[in-house]
């Protein structure tokens, strides 16, 4: 069996007294597309944000390849928070796309996309621009490279944000409800772009409310509720014959 690209073991997270992640285990192999579904407040976004340490988990371990995310293991097996530079470095290996796009409003689309490659990875500007143009072409934004984010529609902004994440040449892409802030008619264009990434064998974790997308695109679907991994299985199984009552109940509510 191929070794896991992302490995989570007993990941727990508290917001003050609130226990939002109650011990999540997960293995994602290279090239896999995992959709995470579940009611709001179930901890799925928090778990995704723990993967690139935007959210610090309090217990357990998350591994990207053979690197522990966010912590260092000392000789006695205890975990100590990693240095800022190493945390930043491991984040460059994961691209992230947010619900609210979070493009940099003071930069043009092209500048948004080359910011990471030139400033963080210190690659040559010309090369970064060339790559950015190719990526923007791929997400259908060739005509908008010099536009500023606020002049773009939500769908265009999200596609630019995907290009920005891809420009880092990440090993994994993390999507945090990428279509939840979009008008219904713009959802399709963003999902199409995400779908097209599967053709390259990109490893992806997608937190989503788009059940049809989860069913059609994901290799596996993970159902979360109340900080717990309820079940994880192939989409056909989850959507037609879920093992847990909670999954069935949730799907009944959202698929009505």
């Amino acid at each position: 069996m191929t070794p896991a690209m992302i490995k989570a073991r007993n990941v727990q997270k508290y917001f003050g007294q609130l226990h939002v992640l109650k011990g999540i285990d997960l293995d994602i192999v290279k090239g896999e597309v995992l959709a995470i579904i579940g009611p709001s407040g179930s901890g799925k976004s928090t778990f995704l944000r723990c993967m690139n340490f935007l959210e610090e988990y309090d217990h357990g371990e998350i591994w990207l390849g053979d690197e522990l995310v966010g912590y260092r293991k000392s000789a006695n097996g205890k975990l100590a928070k990693d240095g800022a530079a190493r945390i930043a470095a491991i984040r460059t290996r994961m691209g992230m796309v947010f619900q609210s796009f979070n493009l940099f409003p003071h930069m043009s689309v092209l500048e948004n996309v080359i910011e990471g490659p030139t400033i963080v990875q210190r690659r040559k500007r010309e090369e970064a621009i060339e790559q950015a143009k190719a990526l923007l072409d791929r997400v259908g934004l060739s005509a908008k490279i010099d536009a500023y984010p606020e002049t773009l529609s939500g769908g265009q902004q999200q596609r630019a944000a995907i290009a920005r994440a891809l420009a880092m040449n990440p090993e994994v892409m993390l999507f945090d409800e990428p279509t939840s802030a979009l008008d219904p008619e713009l959802v399709g264009e963003v999902l199409d772009v995400i779908k097209s990434l599967t053709a390259d064998g990109m490893t992806m974790v997608v937190v989503t409310h788009e059940m049809s997308f989860a069913r059609d695109v994901a290799d596996r679907v993970m159902m979360m509720d109340d900080g717990i991994r309820v079940e994880i299985d192939a989409p056909e199984k989850i959507f037609t014959n879920p093992s847990h009552a909670r999954t069935a109940e949730f799907l009944q509510r959202v698929l009505r």
Binding site: A88, F98, R164
Partner: peptide, 27 residues
């Protein structure tokens, strides 16, 4: 400046100083 700007800057691997200088302060 919205928290999402920090998230986006960190997500592309920026350190605090880089995020502050390139993303947060200019805005």
């Amino acid at each position: 400046i919205a928290k999402g700007q920090w998230d986006a800057a960190r997500a592309i691997g920026m350190t605090y100083t880089q995020a502050m200088r390139r993303i947060i302060l200019p805005q």
